[in-house]
Design a protein around this nucleic acid. Structure first.
Length: 421
RNA sequence: GUGGACGUAGCUCAAUGGUAGAGUCCCGGAUUGUGAUUCCGGUUGUUGUGGGUUCGAAUCCCAUCGUCCACCCCA
């Protein structure tokens, strides 16, 4: 059964009803939270021209070098890629439709992303992100807004143990200068570094800084620090951000080695990490990308944003953070007249906002009652021929004590209302 | 991409190289129109797949697919 049937693709999983209520809870909470900060939803295609990601994320990043689902469109030979992240598409769409013409934009998106990595805890080939982007805002005030709003979300969701780490990469020029300096420093260590690391020194030296390889630690510790040689404007930006966060009572740690995996970042970068997730412990990360808009062909515009991993947030939700919402009423019916009447009753109950499952498929009262019970509904409404004859129904509580009562339909609606259904 | 652990009923798991089992779930019944508890009865498998060793393989070997965890990397 497992081999003969078609299996899902490795690292891509079905989310079943036993889990989806948690997803829906999270999605609802997140949407309300985003709206409370005035962010507007944007939806872009999942598939884009490969070049969009290569140009925005960076040719020498792991994502572009080995993790993208890229294929050729058979019909016209174009190279297409399933989006590995959302920022590039979002910026592309903003440029396409000149959204910045009418001023800065606060946007968000949610949906699946795709990276061809080996799956493990907290890492999937299809995973889901909520992304938040603010375009056209230059100052550290928006950086601070992003971080403060994250903290609010963790509180709303009841998540604990999530810590903030920040760094600044300086301006684009500053970052480029530092890159060369770092390269100069690292190159002499060539032999000590493995091939892969040496390659990285050549192509993307900043990535060496956040390596976990213990052998590299002494070398990394001795490396020049970007923070020590940052231009005045960048320093001021970072300091203002810190001051705002302190006023908001948000704890953070500055980690000079924090470098993000995507090339487009500059100035502020940050990362929220959990202590409960195993090796993949980043639940949310982002920063500023002031050059990306121009890089993708737009008029220069500052921007910053971040993304969080839905699966990782779900893994942190406390047991019982949300409960599945069963129907209020399971409607049991038997007999020709009862079957017809039951449908009318069900619609009437729904008119009053009551959630009703109508039993389908016939069967004895006993078997129908079993279904009623296992559906989780709080009440059974029972209609046999006797009730149908009298245009009545019987209401039986399934989760609490109380007698079964036979009465008219409007009375049943009233009684259900009294029970806060 | 590299490494380690693991694949037995829908689910959770047993079974020294000797007939593949339990719990749960599901279905039916316990005075004919009433659930979850209790009691009785019943169904459930190409032991992931393909080879090999053996008189005999769920068990040992090889390959393959998949899952999990870690490396790497990241949300």
């Amino acid at each position: 059964m497992k081999d003969k049937n078609i299996q899902p693709i490795r690292g891509m999983s079905d989310v079943l009803p036993g889990q989806t209520y948690l997803w829906e809870y999270l999605e609802d909470t997140v949407r309300a939270w985003l709206q409370s900060y005035g962010y507007l939803n944007i939806r872009t295609p999942i598939l884009e021209k490969t070049d969009l990601f290569v140009r925005s994320i960076g040719e020498t990043t792991d994502i572009v070098e080995k993790e993208m689902y890229t294929f050729t469109d058979r019909l016209n030979g174009e190279s297409l890629t399933l989006r590995p992240e959302g920022t590039a598409s979002c910026v592309r769409a903003v440029l396409q439709h000149n959204l910045l013409y009418s001023g800065p934009q606060r946007l968000y998106y949610t949906g699946p992303m795709f990276r061809h990595e080996r799956p493990q805890q907290g890492r999937f080939r299809q995973f889901h992100q909520v992304g938040v982007e603010a375009l056209g805002y230059p100052g550290p005030d928006i950086d601070a807004e992003h971080i403060i709003m994250c903290e609010r979300l963790w509180n709303k969701l009841g998540l604990t143990g999530i810590k903030l780490r920040m760094n600044t990469l300086g301006s684009v020029d500053c970052r480029a200068r530092y890159r060369e300096r770092l390269k100069k420093y690292l190159t002499p260590f060539g032999n000590k570094l493995g091939d892969s690391v040496r390659n990285r020194v050549e192509r993307n030296p900043l990535r060496v800084l956040d390596s976990k390889d213990p052998a590299l630690q002494p070398i990394i510790d001795g490396a020049p620090r970007l923070l020590d040689d940052i231009d005045e404007a960048s320093r001021k930006h970072f300091e203002e951000l810190q001051a705002t966060l302190r006023r908001a009572g948000i704890a953070f740690e500055i980690n000079p080695r924090l470098v993000r995996g995507l090339d487009y970042y500059n100035l502020t970068v940050f990362e929220w990490m959990s202590d409960k997730l195993g090796a993949q412990n980043t639940v949310c990360a982002g920063g500023r990308y002031d050059s990306l808009v121009e890089q993708l062909g737009g008029k220069p515009a500052p921007a910053c944003g971040y993304a969080m991993g839905i699966e990782r947030l779900l893994a942190l939700l406390q047991e019982g953070a949300a409960v599945a919402q069963p129907a209020d009423v399971y409607l049991v019916h038997q007999g020709e007249a009862a079957d017809k009447f039951a449908l009318q009753v069900a619609e009437k109950l729904r008119d009053s906002g009551i959630r009703v499952i109508v039993h389908c498929g016939g069967g004895s009262f006993k078997s129908q009652m079993k279904r009623a019970d296992s559906s989780g509904a709080r009440f059974a409404v029972i209609i046999g021929d006797d009730e149908a004859q009298a245009q009545q129904a019987s209401l039986k509580p399934l989760r609490e004590s109380g007698e079964q009562i036979r009465t008219g339909i409007t009375e049943i609606v009233d009684m259900l209302r009294k029970h806060h259904v």
